[in-house]
Amino acid sequence: MTEENKEMSEIIAHQNIIEVRSLSVFYGQFQALKDVNIDIQARKITALIGPSGCGKSTFLRTLNRMNDLIEGVRTEGWVIFDGKNIFDEDTDLLELRRRIGMVFQRPNPFPLSIFDNVTYGLRVHGQTDRALMEERLVHSLQAVNLWDELKDRLEANALCLTGEQQQRLCIARVLALGPEVVLMDEPCSALDPTATARIEDLMYQLKQKYTIIIVTHNMQQAARVSDFTGYFLLGELVEFGQTGQIFTSPRDRRTEDYITGRFG
C-alpha cells in the first residue's frame, strides 16, 4: 500500500458514517429522546449505556427506522446516513434496513433450517441465484466462526443450536446482506459469561469491516469492547466520547455517578 493510499484509508476509517442531529422521539405524549446529537464513526464500536428506560434502545431502533412499526411514534430531527436523511420521504426503507442490520437481545432464529435462516434476507431482497446464496452463506458463517461447526448440518433446524450458536447465527443472518452498520441491542444478555466473552471477541473481529453500535447494560462490556461510549439518561445523551475518557475522567457528574455505581 502506498503512503497516499494509507492516508486515504485512514481518512475513510475515521469518517462519520452516521450523523444524528437534534433527534427527538415521542411515543404519543411521552418524549423518549430529547434533542440527541451524535456522530458515529465508521468501523468502530460505539457503546450506548444507561439505566433501563433511558432511551438507548429507542435510539438504536430509530437508526434503522424499526420504530416506525410502533403505533403513535413521532420523530423530529435528522439522522444522516450516507449523506441522506433517513427520514426523507423517498428513503427506501427496505434498503436502509439491509444496510443497517440489527441483532436482538434474545437469539431469535426462525424455526427454519440453518441455510434458510442465513439466506432469508437475501431471498426477501429478491435473490434467487443459489450459487451466490451459498457463497454468502459460507462467508457469513465463517465471519461468525460457525462454519466449521455447522457446515455438515446446514439443513438442521436452527432451533436445535445452543443459545450462543443461535446468536452467532443471527449475526450471520445480518451479515449475509452485506450491511455497513450492525446495531446490537444487548446481544449478550441472554448468554452465559464465557459465551459473552466469545461474542465480544467476535465484535472485535467484525469491526474490521463493519460499524457496530451496541446497547448494553453491562458497563464492563462497554469498557472492554467499545471505542466510543454514549451515556443516556431519561432520553438525553448526557455525555459522549472516547470510551477511555468516559470511564476514566467523565466530564459530567451524572456520568460519573452512573459508572462508579452510585446511581443506576
Binding site: 412499526l69 427496505l94 442490520g101 440489527m102 436482538f104 443471527c170
Partner: peptide
C-alpha cells in the same frame, strides 16, 4: 421484528 429488520416487506 427480525423479518422487518432484514428489510422484508
Amino acid at each position: 421484528l427480525v423479518s422487518y429488520s432484514l428489510g422484508s416487506t
